[in-house]
């Protein structure tokens, strides 16, 4: 499933980033790499951005970018 589909509060493990070029690279640079575990903290209403905990920090990403990250639900640390 895609990260954008995950409800707030759920943990996930990154499978892979489907995007490439600038957006994909940015996500990978921020720690969205295969096997990395994280958690969706909250989602802004009306399709707004997500707050995701990953790699020891919090990252804000847009719904569209989250839709480009394939994740497996679960894997909470």
């Amino acid at each position: 499933m895609r990260l954008s589909e995950l409800p707030a509060g759920h943990a996930f493990t990154v499978d892979r980033v489907l995007l490439s070029r600038e957006t994909g690279k940015r996500l990978a640079d921020m720690g969205f790499t295969a096997g990395r575990r994280g958690r969706v903290v909250r989602k802004q209403y009306l399709g707004g951005p997500l707050q995701v905990e990953i790699l020891g920090g919090s990252v804000l990403i847009r719904r569209a970018e989250a839709a480009g990250i394939e994740v497996v639900q679960g894997g909470a640390a």
Binding site: E22, T23, R26, M30, Q51, L60, R62, E65
Partner: peptide
Amino acid sequence: PTPFVMEL
């Protein structure tokens, strides 16, 4: 579009 990927 510029990606919105920022550390909180």
